[in-house]
Design a protein around this nucleic acid. Structure first.
Ligand SMILES: [Mn+2]
Ligand SMILES: [Mn+2]
Ligand SMILES: [Mn+2]
Ligand SMILES: [Mn+2]
Lengths: 219, 219
DNA sequence: ATTTTATTTTAGACTAATCTAAATATTATT
DNA sequence: AATAATATTTAGATTAGTCTAAAATAAAAT
């Protein structure tokens, strides 16, 4: 149906507007996300517009059409299901799966992804806590809170990470912070916005604001 | 390293010479196998020769170099491991897996294929009885016999199929002939070379020479 | 309201992979 | 050995996706 490149552009537009789907995406934003030059983006935007996957007006940025969004959700679904498979079944680390899923997501087979979904027991969240769209593109509401918003003595479990670069994920590994790890806030340090937390009821450590703000928590 | 297209050509050359690796493959043979025109094949052969993956002399056909053969084996390994995964874990039918594996085989990750291999307990044969090369490209010897070569009253189990078109595989399904199904020869009919066989100690049927010669048997 | 800066688009070029039509080489047939 | 038939290669085009450099537009600063 669509080429891997077209799929990657659609996914990139979707991910940039995941929080605010009414907003337009700028050419330079996309060129940063895709590691291509702005001129290449403009070319591709014309092609995606011809295929009615995006709304595009010169110089005005771009938004997904209904059809484009549903395509994008299908790719995100595949990406996240494959990530789940790689971690749960093949025992990859959570910092290793993104690059591989980036290729697997382009394999064209409805049957494959539906059977994979069943085989994995229809998981709702991927190894980074991101929601996995169902066959119809529907996302589970997560209602996670940012770690920085917890008060002293409040507890919770790690539910998702915002930043997902391997360097950040490996840093969390070193702190023994993983998906579902229980955390408790010991102190907020006003000076640098850092936090002291207890991890898994054992270690007590200080983490920077930069780290804390990239961790989402559930009960 | 190599594009999916280059990989497909290498695999095609390998498969055409799997029985007799000393033999040269003709341009038209490849164009038939790849569903492209002869002119496209010639173009690609030049590129593969530049990369030292094949020995190519104009009008003289083509053979894999050592490097080309080891590349081809790596792709065949991926293809057959994915087929095994699709049948054993995702419950695909044996006539449905080839097309999907044709895409999965191009995913670039050593770790992925090694972990998949372990996860599947290092299978030696794919769902069609074809040997799965190991990490080093080594193939298990199979020693299967052609069903047509069995004498009356000789028994054996289905070990592999030569023809692998979905139409043929579905025909075998209808006869309840699958991998490992026990067969016994009841009679050879000289007139049309057809055979009467018992399937799974229950049904007794007559199968054409065309069918019989595409079934391989083990003890 | 100009001018400067930043963003985006256009123009033109390149590579991989394909095609058709024409030219050339090889093989088979008389 | 000459001719006919078949196989292969070359020539020239096309499309997707990319790039750099230049031109055009929009936004920010004076
Ligand atoms: Mn991708
Ligand atoms: Mn993820
Ligand atoms: Mn393939
Ligand atoms: Mn197979």
């Amino acid at each position: 149906m669509f080429s891997p490149t077209e799929e990657n552009y659609l996914k990139a537009i979707y991910l940039l507007t995941e929080k605010d789907s009414a907003r337009a995406v700028a050419t330079n934003e996309l060129s940063a996300q895709m590691n291509t030059r702005a001129a290449s983006v403009t070319d591709m935007l014309k092609r995606l517009a011809d295929k009615r996957l995006i709304h595009y007006k010169k110089y005005k940025g771009v938004m997904l059409t209904t059809s484009g969004k549903s395509q994008a959700l299908a790719i995100v679904r595949k990406h996240r299901l494959w990530e789940y498979f790689l971690v749960e079944k093949l025992k990859f680390q959570w910092d290793e799966v993104h690059a591989v899923a980036e290729e697997l997501e382009h394999v064209k087979s409805e049957a494959l992804i539906d059977k994979l979904d069943s085989y994995l027991n229809n998981p709702k969240f991927d190894p980074h806590g991101d929601p996995i769209p169902d066959r119809l593109g529907k996302l589970s509401a997560s209602g996670f809170k940012n770690l920085t918003s917890l008060k002293v003595n409040e507890k919770g479990k790690v539910a998702a990470v915002i930043e997902q670069q391997p360097a950040f994920l490996k840093h969390l590994d070193k702190l023994h912070i993983h998906m579902s790890t229980p955390l408790k806030v010991i102190e907020h340090i006003a000076f640098d916005k850092s936090m002291t937390i207890s991890i898994n009821q054992t270690a007590t450590v200080n983490i920077s604001h930069e780290v804390a703000k990239n961790i989402l928590i559930t009960k």
